[in-house]
């Protein structure tokens, strides 16, 4: 029955009545896949078509928004030049170090704060204060103290990434099902073993959500930092291109950033899923 229903749906999609006939069954599966792909890409396709058509039609000024095809040509050219790669490398080094540093700092700190109520009580007002201060507001301070070089950029990325990881780790540790703790206690588990065997694994999914959020933050903050003062990096590329009126280069830089952002998020999502497979997925 489901097959027939699907075929009917598809018949509507394709606008062809014949598909309802017997042959539909053989078609159904590939058509369903095609349908899924269509639904997932149509919005982006529309955006790109609009980007291509509107400048050409003169609806928007093609000086400020060149058609997509021209931008992609430029991007390809810059990729072959090694321009894109050089700037991407500069940016990724900063993001990577800042992000890694944040994990190294925030993860153990979060575990400690989550585990010891006294630490939480003393530190939480401070955490509350810092987490509500936009990281970029502190960028001038970072530059002042760490200079215009790499350290201030890595520093600001680290700072921005610490909060989501820290707060999620704390909440992951604190919100473990009390019944699991009671049950483990009833088996006479000592505190360290309880932590290792119950608290830590139970907190993993929440911790990874924090890490994924941090990944997104890292890119955003870094680009902003590079806009302000840098001699390389994608943020610098965009800013430099814009001030030199190299509009196509500017858009090429923006596209690169988007793709890296999506790529990092997908990667972290995959990692998160890998570590949270035991979680019941409602409805699946």
């Amino acid at each position: 029955m489901a097959v027939i229903d699907d075929a009917r749906d598809l018949a509507v999609d394709v606008g062809d009545d014949r598909i309802q006939s017997r042959g539909a069954r053989a078609w159904a599966a590939p058509l369903r896949v095609a349908g899924t792909i269509f639904r997932r890409t149509v919005a982006i396709a529309v955006l790109l078509v609009a980007w291509e058509v509107l400048p050409r039609a003169g609806v928007v000024d093609r000086v400020f928004l060149p058609p997509f095809s021209e931008v992609i040509d430029k991007w390809w050219e810059m990729l072959r030049d090694g321009d894109i790669l050089a700037h991407t490398e500069a940016s990724m080094k900063r993001t990577g170090s800042g992000f890694a540093l944040a994990v190294v700092i925030a993860l153990p700190l979060g575990l400690v704060i989550g585990w010891f109520p006294l630490a939480a009580e003393i530190l939480s007002p401070l955490l509350e204060l810092f987490r509500n201060t936009a990281p970029l507001a502190l960028l001038p301070v970072f530059i002042l103290i760490l200079g215009l070089g790499e350290s201030s950029k890595i520093g600001i990325v680290t700072y921005a990434c610490v909060w989501p990881i820290l707060l999620n780790t704390i909440s992951g540790v604190r919100n473990v099902d009390p019944l699991l703790i009671k049950s483990a206690r009833s088996m006479g588990l000592s505190s360290p073993r309880l932590f290792q065997k119950v608290i830590l694994p139970a907190a993993v999914p929440t911790v990874f959500t924090g890490i994924r959020l941090a990944g997104a933050f890292a890119i955003v903050v870094l680009i902003a930092a590079e806009l302000v003062g840098a001699k390389a990096g994608l943020g610098y590329l965009i800013n430099y291109a814009q001030s030199n009126f190299a509009i196509q280069e500017m858009y090429a830089g923006i596209i690169t950033i988007s793709m890296i952002g999506v790529g990092i998020n997908q990667l972290l999502l995959a990692v998160e899923r890998r570590f949270s497979r035991w979680r019941a997925t409602p409805g699946s």
Partner: peptide
């Protein structure tokens, strides 16, 4: 005087570790 493995408790809500 404390919990121990000479006594086993079965809870209404199972208390199974969901990741195992």
């Amino acid at each position: 005087t404390g919990p121990g493995l000479d006594r086993g408790i079965v809870f209404q809500q199972y208390a199974l570790l969901p990741w195992r």
